[in-house]
Amino acid sequence: MDYTEKVLEYFRNPRNMGRMENPDGVGKVGNPVCGDVMWIYIKVGKNENGEEIIEDIKFETFGCAAAIATSSVVTELAKGKTLKEAEKISNKDVVEFLGGLPPVKKHCSLLAEEGLKAAIEDYRRKKNEGKGKNS
């Protein structure tokens, strides 16, 4: 597999890895063909404008080198961003950041995009459920 130097570097030294205790949202996604699985945890805070931001983010990935590298990159791209901005991060951004991925490995970056979106969704759902209980 011909990975770029950047992919190998992120695979070798992934950032934001590991489990998060008491996350505000968790996105669990997987690809049924390759069997790879990615979990993204987020903690949500607020910035000075009162907008919701991703205060902390972590990942756990069972998967190939591309899956691990893209997990790391998506967490870095998302960290500190508002939820609205983070939602817009696409697999293209991740692939670009890494200087490309081999064609069979494009789906790994999709997993990263989906994982982040699922984590944000999970956060919103929990928040709404919480509201529901209060009212």
Binding site: P14, K28, E60, T61, F62
Partner: peptide, 9 residues
């Protein structure tokens, strides 16, 4: 394994 969701959970 440290970064594997299957191992950690």
């Amino acid at each position: 394994r440290k970064i594997s969701p299957f191992w950690n959970n």
